[in-house]
Amino acid sequence: MTRQSISLTPPNDAWLKAQVESQEYASKSDVINDLIRKARAKQEEVEEIQKRLIHAEQSGFVAPDRQSILSEFKKELNSNG
């Protein structure tokens, strides 16, 4: 495993210590690795959603068209004063 040296602000260090003291994690490294795993999973989820949206747009499945959407927004804005 690669070793890294990082600097933490006092509040972040206190939070990490609290996570370890709660016995949910064995070490600060375990907390950091868990946070990174969660961030990576979230990023993968966002990328998958973006990929599906791009595919939907390119397939022509998007309806109504851009002009219809814009007209509807303008109409709604005008009616709400």
Rank of each mutant, 00 (worst) to 15 (best):
K75M: 05
I54Q: 14
E45A: 04
A56M: 11
E48G: 14
I54L: 15
E45Q: 12
A41F: 10
V31K: 00
A26V: 07
D13V: 01
F73Y: 12
R52F: 03
S7C: 06
A18L: 09
G60H: 01
E76K: 13
L35T: 04
R40M: 10
S27L: 03
K51E: 08
K51C: 09
S71N: 11
K38S: 10
Q43F: 00
I49V: 13
Q58T: 05
R40I: 06
I54A: 15
N12D: 10
F61Y: 13
P10D: 11
A56L: 08
D30V: 08
Q43L: 14
K42R: 15
R40Q: 13
V31M: 00
A39H: 15
R52V: 02
N33A: 10
I49G: 02
I36M: 04
A39R: 09
D30R: 06
F61V: 12
G81C: 08
T9G: 02
W15Q: 09
V46K: 13
E24F: 07
N33W: 02
Q23D: 07
K17D: 04
E76A: 14
I49F: 08
S29C: 00
R52Q: 13
L53I: 06
R40V: 09
F73E: 00
L70Y: 04
W15D: 12
D65E: 01
S71T: 10
V62W: 08
K74W: 05
E21S: 14
A14G: 02
S59Q: 04
S22L: 11
D65F: 04
A14P: 00
S79F: 08
K74T: 06
A26H: 10
D30I: 02
S68M: 09
I32L: 13
I32T: 01
E57H: 14
L8A: 01
K17H: 08
E24H: 11
S71G: 12
S27I: 10
K51M: 07
K38L: 10
A18V: 03
N78Q: 14
Q58E: 09
I36Q: 07
S71E: 03
E47F: 01
S7H: 10
R40C: 12
K51F: 03
L77F: 06
K74M: 11
R40L: 14
I54V: 13
L53G: 03
Q23L: 12
S22F: 02
K28A: 13
F61Q: 15
S79C: 08
S68A: 15
V20H: 05
V62T: 08
V20T: 02
L77A: 05
D65Q: 10
Q43M: 04
S68Y: 09
E21C: 08
D34L: 02
F61K: 15
N12P: 00
F61W: 08
K51P: 02
K75C: 03
S71M: 10
K75N: 09
A14I: 02
S7F: 04
S79H: 14
F73W: 04
E48D: 06
Q58V: 03
S29A: 13
N12F: 09
E57C: 14
A63W: 06
